[in-house]
């Protein structure tokens, strides 16, 4: 096996804004280093490639210990929206693009974007619900088959 990573393959299964950005930044970082990158969107991760939902992802205030607030406070109406707004403001300061623009950048950079067939069917989605940049709808097996060389890494987020 070679020592250098040649292809990074991410599986994004969650729609928390922090999870989505982790996948995007690492995939983009790979492309910037000349490493191939792909993202497989499954389950709630599919929200990040739905035209209507992608720019409204939230940070979780309940069940997220990093929020350092009691769970019941985090569950109050408006808390999640407030925390999300604050996080987006910090992201903008670092010139991090919104989700829709990030997807465009990733696609233009040659990162492949795939939707999980099973989750796509489970959520009763239609092709027009998903971003135009999508490269296709794949089964898990199809995705594994794309790990076709030494130096492929599959990361579940």
């Amino acid at each position: 096996m070679g020592t250098k990573v040649k292809k990074m393959m991410f599986i994004l299964s969650k729609a928390n804004i922090d999870n989505a950005y982790a996948a995007f930044i690492m995939a983009n970082g790979a492309r910037m280093e000349g490493i191939e990158a792909e993202i497989f969107f499954t389950f709630f991760g599919l929200e990040a490639i739905q035209k209507k939902k992608m720019d409204h992802l939230h940070v979780a205030t309940v069940g997220n210990p990093a929020m350092h607030m009691p769970t019941m406070i985090g569950g109050l109406p408006g808390m999640e929206a407030l925390a999300t707004k604050m996080m987006k403001k910090e992201m903008e300061k670092l010139d991090m693009p919104p989700v829709s623009e990030f997807i465009e950048i990733l696609s233009d950079s040659g990162c492949k974007l795939w939707a999980c067939k099973l989750a796509y069917e489970m959520f009763h989605l239609k092709e027009e619900d998903l971003v135009d940049e999508l490269d296709g709808i794949l089964t898990v097996g199809d995705f594994y088959n794309r790990a076709d060389q030494d130096g492929c890494q599959i990361v579940f987020i």
């Binding site: 910037m32 280093e33 000349g34 233009d108 950079s109």
Partner: peptide, 10 residues
């Protein structure tokens, strides 16, 4: 990416 393959900004 096409003009500077293998990590364009780098």
């Amino acid at each position: 990416y096409a003009l500077f393959p293998g990590g364009p900004l780098k």
